[in-house]
């Protein structure tokens, strides 16, 4: 019954649509990639990107609202205008840049790393798990290792724990808390690999104005050091800074 009322109210809102209030900017995120973005105990989106996004919106005097979307369809839903920005730990790549626009990076070029159950695990030619359709999966596919693709990051780590894969290849910052809390069960192996051109906010190509607004805000935050503070807060002291 509640929903019926809701729908009726929605119809009313639509009818009175011409009253143009300040547009709300809808911010798309995945909500499954800590510390960038995740769902906290209260069931709300939380993380580095949420805090940063809210600050950017405050500086640009925009009203923002967070929306979660499956990773697989996060770009199609942006270009079809179901939300206006993507902040989901999305690396700036040429392929993506052809379809959407990115602001300058708000997170320095990332490194990806291998994690395995022991130091001598074969991450070069063994079985390596990665999340399907990520730049990490593409990287492994090109190498000598046998790629094992899972739908979620959770499953890729689980695959190493249960021995299905020799190693998992993912963002260093995603793996770090996993390794730290594993109590020595999981360790980093090999050298980190620089992949991707930093993380930026994705926007529609037709939204140049909004892009400039956010670019300005990011520049301001880089200059006054607030972005660095936020990076250290979420990623620790080792994080590259601006």
């Amino acid at each position: 019954m509640k929903l019926h009322l809701a729908t009726a109210a929605a119809a009313l809102t639509l009818a009175a649509s011409a009253v143009s209030a300040q547009d709300v900017i809808r911010m798309g995120t995945e909500g499954a990639y800590p510390p960038y973005n995740f769902i906290n105990d209260a069931g709300e989106v939380d993380g580095f990107e949420i805090e940063l996004g809210n600050e950017l919106c405050a500086r640009a005097e925009l009203e923002c609202e967070w929306v979660t979307n499956e990773w697989d369809s996060i770009i199609p839903n942006l270009v079809s205008s179901n939300y206006d920005t993507i902040m989901a730990g999305m690396s700036i790549t040429d392929e993506r840049d052809e379809v959407i626009d990115f602001t300058q990076d708000y997170y320095p070029p990332t490194e990806s790393a291998y994690v395995a159950a022991s130091e001598d695990a074969d991450w070069e030619t063994g079985v390596v798990a990665a999340q399907a359709t990520t730049i990490q999966a593409a990287h492994v596919a090109e190498g000598d290792a046998a790629l094992l693709e899972f739908a979620t990051p959770e499953e890729t780590v689980a695959a190493v724990r249960n021995g299905e894969a020799d190693a998992v290849f993912a963002d260093y910052d995603f793996l770090k808390p996993v390794v730290e809390s594993s109590g020595g069960e999981l360790v980093f192996v090999g050298e980190p690999v620089p992949l991707g051109g930093g993380i930026g906010m994705g926007l529609r190509e037709s939204d140049a104005e909004l892009k400039d607004t956010f670019d300005e805000a990011i520049t301001a935050m880089k200059e006054d050091g607030t972005l660095n503070e936020m990076l250290v807060k979420w990623f620790g002291d080792e994080i590259g800074q601006y």
Binding site: Q22, D84, V99, S206
Partner: peptide, 19 residues
């Protein structure tokens, strides 16, 4: 259709972005 983008006027959005 602007390139890859699907953009309609603000009044036609479903639901409105102000909703």
């Amino acid at each position: 259709r602007q390139g890859n983008d699907f953009v309609v006027c603000a009044e036609a959005k479903l639901p409105l972005s102000t909703a």
